[in-house]
């Protein structure tokens, strides 16, 4: 017991506060009954009207839970798999897919509409994860920057180094995707490729925001004309222009793209399995799929989903992106990242 000097204290007030606090906590504790909770990463977005329409059709309310970036969200789902915090998870991508399947955080569900999806999105045979959308991580360049005439060479010729800013694959998902693109493109020579980029002065930053808004000359007062970003970035530039513009001032290097596919799944242990299944099906309807591009700036997984006009005008649909088997990624990613770190940062 503590040795006391003297005073006497106003106990009633303190006890009152403690009781009050307990009451507040318990009053707010009982939330979310009868609603479907969807755990997403911070980049998730969809029109409120689309969610409302789902509620109208099914009577199921949807509440969104922001789990941070994709890595944090998946870590949360894995840590809580015995007693999940949500019913549905959205935003696991192909670089994390095998790990998520292995952890068995979701239950197999064969969604209605699965057959209407692009073949390349169908990466999970176990059907624990349903493909929802896809996008490409690419080199993006400032059209006003000083660049070689052969833009495709930007990827194949490591002399790009001095003008290039990339994200650290150990803390950024586009950074990892670009590393995977180089591994897919130069299976035996990617280490030399990066060693050369380093020699040329490639700049590595921790995340997309620092690269794009801190160093990329096409979007900041930075001096790097080439950045690792998304194929849809030039479209977003037009949509989110402070002063309306007709054409984006940046473009992507199609030869450099790595394809990311995003999945959703029904979390194991949910009480609302039926409702969750309905929501997964809804995500594959054209109503939801056609709402994806302007909200998340990625492409619908459904082959027959129509694209918004601004995507038709400005988006590049990459024909032949680099890909790697999710199992190969899962088996090697830690070792690859470590090797990359040794080559580029140490």
């Amino acid at each position: 017991m503590l040795a006391w000097r003297k005073p006497n204290f106003g106990r009633t007030r303190l006890i009152g506060a403690a009781v009050g606090l307990t009451l507040i906590v318990s009053a707010c504790g009982s939330s979310g009954d009868g609603t479907l909770t969807v755990l997403t990463h911070s980049s998730f977005a969809i029109s409120q009207t689309t969610l409302d329409s789902f509620t109208e059709q099914t009577g199921i309310e949807v509440s969104l839970l922001d789990g941070g970036d994709a890595g944090a969200m998946l870590a949360q789902a894995i840590l809580t798999k015995d007693n999940p915090i949500a019913d549905v998870i959205f935003g696991v991508d192909n670089t994390f897919l095998s790990r998520a399947v292995e952890e068995e955080i979701t239950v197999p569900y064969r969604a209605t509409g699965l057959n209407g999806l692009h073949e390349f999105t169908r990466l999970d045979d176990t059907n624990r994860f349903t493909p929802i959308d896809y996008g490409d991580v690419c080199l993006q360049y400032d059209t006003a920057g000083v660049l070689p005439a052969d833009r495709g060479g930007l990827f194949f010729d490591p002399d790009t180094g001095p003008g290039l800013v990339v994200e650290d694959p150990s803390s950024s998902s586009p950074g990892l995707a670009f590393l995977l693109a180089t591994i897919a493109a130069f299976p035996d020579g990617w280490q030399d490729y990066w060693a050369s980029l380093r020699e040329q002065g490639v700049l590595v930053v921790p995340s997309w925001t620092e690269a794009y808004y801190g160093e990329f000359s096409g979007a900041s007062d930075g001096d790097r004309p080439v950045v690792v970003s998304y194929a849809s970035s030039p479209v977003a530039e037009v949509v989110f222009a402070a002063e309306p513009i007709d054409e984006p001032t940046t473009a992507i290097v199609e030869e450099s793209c790595f394809r990311q596919v995003e999945f959703a799944g029904i979390l194991d242990g949910t009480d609302s399995r039926g409702d969750a299944a309905e929501f997964i099906d809804f995500m594959l309807t054209n109503e939801f799929q056609e709402d994806i591009p302007l909200n998340m700036f990625v492409f619908p997984a459904r082959t027959d989903a129509a694209l918004p006009q601004v995507f038709v005008d400005h988006a590049v649909i990459v024909e032949d992106p680099w890909t790697l088997d999710p199992e190969v990624i899962a088996a090697n990613r830690d070792a690859w990242i470590e090797e990359w770190t040794e080559i580029v940062l140490r």
Partner: peptide
């Protein structure tokens, strides 16, 4: 995991996670 109650820092992060001069501004 945060229910949908974006605070000022969260809103700033969301905006900075997207391309476009309007988002940055």
């Amino acid at each position: 995991a945060r229910p949908d109650t974006p605070t000022l820092p969260i809103a700033i992060f969301r905006l900075l996670g997207r391309p476009g001069t309007l988002n940055f501004g």
